[in-house]
Design a protein around this nucleic acid. Structure first.
Lengths: 334, 334
DNA sequence: CTGAAAGCGCTTACAG
DNA sequence: CTGAAAGCGCTTACAG
């Protein structure tokens, strides 16, 4: 790599570096036609391409943002990233993606490194374990938006699902179809992650509103690896639930594994609704009734919020919460 | 954001910027203990964090690489990215991810921008539409590795599946289980993408080796949106195939949609094997026999090749092709 | 209309 | 053991 710089172009075109810089930044207001042509030619001949790092240093903007997801292997994260990337691409921004694995230590490391790399802003699925750091970010007026989760007392704009509504939709659908022994299975609640908490709250609430009584033995949560036992326990109750809401796609997977293994017939033996639409929902047997999150719109909104914030750096932006509507995909499992 | 620089730290600690820089880079060989302490304290007090952009400009390394996938929504890409990210994280590198959508124009734009941003190297799923650009990269001795696809006459190290083997495994499995009318369905072949071509070649080859005759009407390809018709045509043949190999997960999805809709019994009416393991394979009914790619190992290897290449920039690296073994997951659909 | 100069925040020989 | 100075490749007032 030869590394041709603006100085080379200037010399070749016989103008000053300033003029070349003006040209590159499309400020031709006062530039002579011949000068323009000469510079164009020089760039062409030399195969010059500007060093954006140098520009970034001076301009204090890298046109890059960081995106910290819990785990890119989760379909929801993937869709969110894709939407963010598309939006950023339009705006000539790039995204650095990081997996925090819901680990506050990794999250902190990433946020620190990303800031050291001078990214213009960050979109993160916050772990909740770095409150002091979030506060620092706010103090610094650093552009950041939260995705999927809120952190108590942290005033950072957030994009997330109307999680209560999602559960309510599910319960309502179960009730409408005549189920009344409704259970719910969730992953670990240790970290108090927003969507889980809210979906549970929404579930309990909906149960009450439909004049059913909340049966604690119809509610269970567990780390994914142990969840088969939890399912087993619930379904082997003397009077087991006739319907189960899976808090997310990973729980749904586990229930499906269980029902296949034990030849449980869906929906006759057990009705099922999962939050998160899954790739195979429509051609599974039975087709799976799910509640989808508008992941692309959510990702787009987050990107939009962040880029606006970046562009109006000065204004101390208002904190905004954007709730997105879940959507029932009524198929055959309920 | 106050922006505290190395100069502030130097002043606060009453040493020169050079000394602070030495400290930051852990070159304490000759540094006095008291000096060290003073600098440490200054950094602490001031909340200093180095500006990596400035360092990058000087050192000509950004410890960032670009990863251009076809589409992050594809599970394989997602797994590859995760593996790359994990490997890079270990080495304190970050990754910028881009979706080229198999569009050479987007690919070129991304490669140019990424280089302008001085990323230290690129891992890409090449579209094949930018031969001149690839050659330029080689001329510049720019660190790059190809993933999943090779481009004729382009000597760039590549990590990919042993695709012929994957098809052969499938055919062999079909034959072993007594199927002999074996068909194959593929997505569009317009772009001549390596895995598709190789899997087809492997399929034809295996058919021959098993002394079956290749029946052209048992072979079809089409854009995904039109693929239902293609499937219909094949399965409504007077003498339809008794087994079909789906070239990838997306084709498998379509076949599954079709068989569900038309109540075709798997494997009795039609045996099925798909290349790419899918999330629901084990709990679908019947459980799906698939051929998995070791996506994580492949991503890791690509990252390893690239980082090695980056570290030994001088040496004109040998071009290496790394083929990974497909793995048969023998379940119930065949 | 264009150029000289300073500066962005670091690192790195080199001198002492 | 530590500092002054130059330089990485740009941009941006400012002067003319």
């Amino acid at each position: 790599m030869k590394t041709v710089t603006i100085a080379d172009v200037a010399k070749y075109a016989d103008v000053s570096k300033s003029t070349v810089s003006q040209f590159l930044n499309h400020r031709y207001d006062y530039m002579g036609e011949k000068t323009k042509k000469r510079i164009e030619l020089a760039i062409e001949e030399l195969g010059y391409s500007p060093n954006i790092i140098a520009r970034s240093l001076k301009q204090k903007s890298t046109t890059t943002i960081g995106v910290i997801v819990a785990n890119i292997l989760h379909v929801f994260s993937t869709q969110v990233i894709r939407a963010i990337e598309d939006f950023c691409n339009e705006a000539d921004f790039h995204i650095i993606v990081c997996n925090a694995d819901d680990n506050p230590v990794k999250e902190k490391r990433y946020i620190d490194m990303l800031r050291a790399k001078q990214v213009d802003g960050i979109i993160t699925f916050p772990t909740g374990g770095n409150v002091a750091l979030y506060e620092r970010l706010i103090d610094d007026n650093y552009p950041i938006v939260f995705m999927d989760r809120m952190i108590p007392d942290i005033a950072i704009s957030t994009v997330l699902l109307d999680n209560k509504k999602a559960s309510e939709l599910a319960v309502e659908t179960f009730v409408k179809k005549g189920y009344s022994q409704i259970g719910m299975i969730t992953p670990s609640l240790d970290q108090g992650i927003t969507p889980r908490m809210e979906r549970i709250a929404g579930f309990k609430n909906a149960i009450r509103e439909h004049n059913l009584s909340f049966n604690p033995s119809y509610f269970a949560s567990s780390e994914i690896p142990d969840i088969q036992n939890v399912i087993k326990e619930m379904l082997e109750l003397p009077s087991p639930p006739d319907a189960i809401l899976a808090l997310n796609d990973r729980v749904l997977f586990e229930i499906l594994k269980y029902t296949k293994k034990h030849h449980i017939n869906i929906p006759d033996d057990l009705a099922l609704i999962g939050i998160d639409d899954v790739s195979f929902a429509s051609f599974y047997s039975p087709a799976l009734t799910t509640i989808a999150q508008p992941a692309f719109e959510m990702g787009k909104k987050a990107a939009e919020l962040l880029l606006n914030r970046i562009r109006n750096k000065d204004q101390n932006a208002e904190m905004e919460i954007h709730r997105f509507e879940p959507k029932l995909l009524d198929r055959e499992s309920c």
